[in-house]
Design a protein around this nucleic acid. Structure first.
Lengths: 179, 179
DNA sequence: ATGATTCCGAACGACGTGTTCGGTTATTCA
DNA sequence: TGAATAACCGAACACGTCGTTCGGAATCAT
């Protein structure tokens, strides 16, 4: 139903494609953004389940979580892509990014506190750096004809990011953050 | 003239703010995007001058170039911000990112070839990773009440990015890319 | 079967974009 | 200075899209 851009696509297109009357659509969704958000919430729920099943089945290292994210994106490629292209897409991406940053930032804060580190770069900036890079890598991967597996992507992301985080947070060699 | 979002702002707003008649505006610019692009080109030209003056005045290490970018953004903060918020903003950001990726990718390719490295992560991905992180850091910096100087930002970016690139391209300790 | 709920279709108002055109103001140049 | 040329103005217009409304039709529940 929504395989293309999102403000490029008109309400009428959706109506035609979905064989639904205008009035009916507006009985279910307040407006266009609401419709898009409902799609987003659906994907979000699905991702929640995916991650839950993942976590339940064993230890959740950061690598595993990252891979789970890539896997879920691969499984729902069309929907992911339809969500990230466009104005509302940018808005959603911003929301997701902000939440991820918040999550990662707290994680970094804990790590820094636990090990009494003196970060060379503020944790806020490190967190936002890492998340942005992740999101970018993800979106780019979604756009390209998938030449890499989810596991590959996760590993590459890990390989690039761990050294950066170590340097930013002033860790020494073997001192890697988990989860 | 354009200190706020860009598809949020209506043509009429611009007309009022600029004390110009509708017909006059459309005599100069084909459409809204054309107007926005002309602003972008102006900033782009200004950046070109800035970098040229920078390069002329001595060796241009990567750190210096990065700092020059942050400096220019700080000088033209309002215009930068007006350019990055909105649909057209996303488009522009995409264009800029793509060009930067191209640039950085070539640079990495050369470095890899010159040193006969066996990158653990494809140069394309490393390049796009780095550029995305840079763009994100830049936009975030533009949004926040500038608590860091351009030099600070450049240094932090450097500190985070060099280890990541080294790891991705399989370099050993002291083997840092220049430019 | 009938009452309630949902859906349909067609029209409507509001808003933003880009175009047109006749008239007015500036600029240029002789 | 004065006329020709160019630039600007303002007001209207067509068009597309969004979101709303409402009476009637279809579907569902009991």
């Amino acid at each position: 139903m929504l395989e293309k851009g999102y403000d490029a696509v008109t309400i009428q297109d959706i109506l035609d494609r979905a064989d639904v009357a205008r009035a009916t659509l507006y009985a279910h969704f307040r407006d266009k953004d609401d419709l898009m958000m409902s799609r987003f919430e659906a994907v979000r729920g699905s991702l929640g389940d995916h991650l839950a099943g993942f976590v339940r089945s064993g230890a959740a290292s950061m690598r595993d979580v990252v891979r789970a994210l890539f896997e879920h994106a691969a499984e729902h490629r069309a929907e992911y892509r339809s969500l990230v292209g466009s104005r509302s897409g940018s808005a959603i991406l911003a929301v997701v990014t902000r939440q991820l940053v918040k999550l990662v930032r707290e994680h970094f804060r804990d790590a820094v506190a636990a090990r009494e580190l003196r970060p060379a770069v503020p944790v806020d900036i490190v967190a936002s750096y890492v998340v942005s890079a992740f999101v970018a890598m993800m979106t780019q991967w979604l756009d390209s004809p998938q030449s890499h597996t989810a596991a590959d992507m996760a590993q590459m992301f890990q390989r690039l990011t761990l050294p950066a985080v170590s340097a930013g947070l002033n860790m020494h060699g073997g001192d890697r953050p988990r989860s």
